[in-house]
Design a protein around this nucleic acid. Structure first.
Lengths: 215, 215
DNA sequence: CATTCAATGTATGAGCCTCTCACATCACTC
DNA sequence: GAGTGATGTGAGAGGCTCATACATTGAATG
C-alpha cells in the first residue's frame, strides 16, 4: 500500500531534515514566507506530504530551522569581514555594513530570520544572534567614552543592531529601489550611519549636544 | 436560500469594511498575523465567509488595510509628541523614542505595519511612512553639520528611521523581556541612541572619528 | 408609488494546506 | 535472522482562500 517511493532510489531519503531545510530556503527565496508551504517542500524533496512532520513539529518549526541555517551562514560572513578592519570604530561600522550586504544576498532568508512572529516564539533564533554581541563586546568597550560602564557598551551594540536591522528592513521592502541594485549603496550608507552612532557614543557625556546623558 | 442573516438585525451590515478592519486588528493582537484568517474576521463580524471579499480583494488586502489604519494612529501620536519638544535635536530624538513607546501599545499592529512581505507588495504602506520624512526634514536640516547638503538630511532621517524600527523589532520579539514591562526603558534607550546618532551627524566631517566622511 | 439597479450579503464548492493516524519499509543490533 | 525503532506512505478530517451564482435591499428614477 505504501510501496514505491517515486523519484527516489531508496525508500528512506538519507537526510530528509537537511533536504527540507534547503528546499524551504529555495521556496522562500522564490515566493516569500507567506507563499511557502510544507506540502511544496515535501514535493520538491520527492517525499509524501506527511513525511516532514516526522522531523518538524509544524510548519513554523521548519521555517525556524531554515532561519537558523541562515543565521549560521551570516555568522560565517561576519567572521570573514570582521577580522580585516583595523580600529575598533571601523570594525563596528563595517560589521553593520556587511550585514546589510548579506541581506541582499540572502533576501528571503533574512525575511524569516526577522519575521516578527517567529523570533518571538522561537528563542533559539534570538540566541543565535545574541552570540554576535559577545563577539563584538570588546570592540564596543574600546570605543565608548572613558569612564562609561559595560552597560553603555551593550547599549551601543543594541543600537548598532537596531540600526543595521532597520536598514535591512528598508532595503528588503524596496524603499530605496530594487534591492539587488541598491544594496551596495545602502550598505555604505549604513556604514556611515554606524560611524556616526559610534562617534556619538564615544564623546564624553555633555560634550557634544546631550549625548548619552541619562534622561 | 440566503434568507436570514443571524446575529444581526439587518441584512446589510452598515459599514462592514470598517468592522472587518477593527476585527482584523483585534485578531492580530490576539494570535498574530499568521494566526489571522479572513474567515475568523467574518465570523466575528457575524457575516458569511465570502462577504469580506466584496470589500477586499484578498487576505493581504484586508491585512494591509488594517496596517494602514495603524499607521494613521501612529501619525496622530507623532503629531502630539513632536510639538512639545524644544530644539531640533531633541525633537528628532523624541520622535524615535515615542515611536518605540507606540510599538508597545499597538503590538500586533506594528507587526503587520512592518511585515516584510506586505510592505514590499503594498506601496501605499510605504507612502504612509514616507510622509513622516516630510514632516521631519526641516528639523534634520537644522541639525546636520553646516555645509552639508539635503542628501545628508535625508540620510539622517533614514538612519533614525532604521534605528527606531530596529528597536521596535527587538522590543516586540521580547529581546529585552516582556514588551509591556520594558517598553518605557527601551524607549528611553532608543531616545539616547537617537541623540548619539544626531550628534554624530552634527559634527563637521573629519572632526570626531570618521563621521560622515564618504567611503 | 412602482420599478429598476447597483451594492452588499449568502450559499456552495473547488482546490490547497496542515496535521494525524494506522500501516509499510528499512537499518541496526544482538 | 528476528526484533525494534526510526523514517516514509496513504488516506483523511477539518480549515482556509477565493470564485461563482443567487438573494436582499436602499435609493434613484419615472
Amino acid at each position: 500500500m505504501a510501496p514505491t517511493p517515486k523519484g527516489r532510489a531508496t525508500y528512506h531519503h538519507g537526510d530528509l531534515a537537511a533536504a527540507l531545510v534547503a528546499a524551504t530556503l529555495e521556496i522562500i527565496d522564490e515566493v516569500g514566507v507567506r507563499g511557502f508551504s510544507v506540502a511544496e517542500a515535501a514535493r520538491r524533496t520527492c517525499v509524501s506530504p506527511g513525511a516532514p512532520y516526522r522531523h518538524f513539529a509544524d510548519r513554523d518549526a521548519l521555517v525556524a530551522a531554515a532561519a537558523l541555517e541562515v543565521s549560521r551562514r551570516l555568522r560565517a560572513i561576519y567572521l570573514e569581514t570582521a577580522a580585516e578592519s583595523g580600529s575598533a570604530q571601523e570594525r563596528l561600522a563595517t560589521v553593520a555594513g556587511s550585514f546589510v550586504r548579506a541581506a541582499a544576498r540572502y533576501r528571503g532568508g533574512l525575511d524569516i530570520l526577522f519575521a516578527p512572529g517567529l523570533r518571538a516564539t522561537h528563542p533559539e533564533l534570538r540566541d543565535s544572534t545574541r552570540e554576535f554581541v559577545d563577539l563584538l563586546l570588546p570592540s564596543a568597550f574600546e570605543v565608548i567614552a572613558p569612564g562609561e560602564g559595560p552597560a553603555t557598551a551593550v547599549a551601543l551594540l543594541d543600537a548598532l543592531h537596531a540600526l543595521a536591522r532597520g536598514y535591512v528592513a528598508q532595503l528588503l521592502e524596496g524603499k530605496f529601489g530594487d534591492p539587488d541594485d541598491v544594496a551596495e549603496e545602502v550598505a555604505i550608507r549604513a556604514t556611515q550611519a554606524a560611524r556616526a552612532l559610534v562617534a556619538g557614543y564615544g564623546v564624553p557625556s555633555g560634550h557634544v549636544g546631550e549625548v548619552a546623558r541619562d534622561r
